[in-house]
Simulated scan of single mutants.
Amino acid sequence: MSSRSINEKLVALTRQMADAAEAMDFEKATALRNEIARIKGEAPLQEGDPDTVTVGQPPPGAMGLGTQVPVRQPPKGWVKPKKPDFMTKNVKPRAGR
């Protein structure tokens, strides 16, 4: 299926789900919601499960306060500057040797 036909199908299913919810047919609306989630690649909610958000485990070594803060990324196109060579910087050449 092309992305255009998938998008059209999702729009149609969303419209049908809204119509079913307005008609108080919640079982049909739930089935349509699960079909939309399946097409999008998301896991639908199981029956009896509360609407909860699952939290993944932090990466190894990330413990304590402030570890949920995302790492800042440098701007696009930014290049890390070259490290100076302390062995040759500010060395006067020996004259006459």
Score class of each variant (00 low, 15 high):
E47K: 12
P81M: 14
E47I: 03
N34K: 08
R94F: 00
G64H: 05
T52F: 14
G48M: 02
A12C: 01
P50R: 15
G61W: 11
K92D: 13
D51E: 12
D85S: 03
Q73I: 07
I39W: 04
A23F: 01
S2M: 01
P58L: 14
A12I: 01
P93I: 11
A21V: 00
Q68I: 10
V55P: 07
E8P: 00
D85L: 08
N7W: 01
A62Y: 08
A95M: 11
D25G: 05
K80A: 11
V11W: 00
K92P: 00
G41W: 07
V91C: 04
R97I: 08
F86R: 01
R33D: 14
V53P: 05
V71D: 06
T67K: 07
S2T: 15
T88Y: 05
T67L: 02
G77V: 06
A43S: 08
P50Q: 13
T67H: 02
K76M: 15
E22G: 06
Q46H: 10
A95L: 12
F86G: 00
A31L: 13
P70V: 03
P44F: 10
P44M: 06
R38V: 14
A37R: 15
A12D: 01
R38S: 15
K82W: 06
L45G: 08
V71F: 07
T52Y: 13
M63D: 13
G48S: 02
G96K: 05
L65S: 04
V91M: 09
V71K: 04
A43C: 03
N34D: 12
L10C: 01
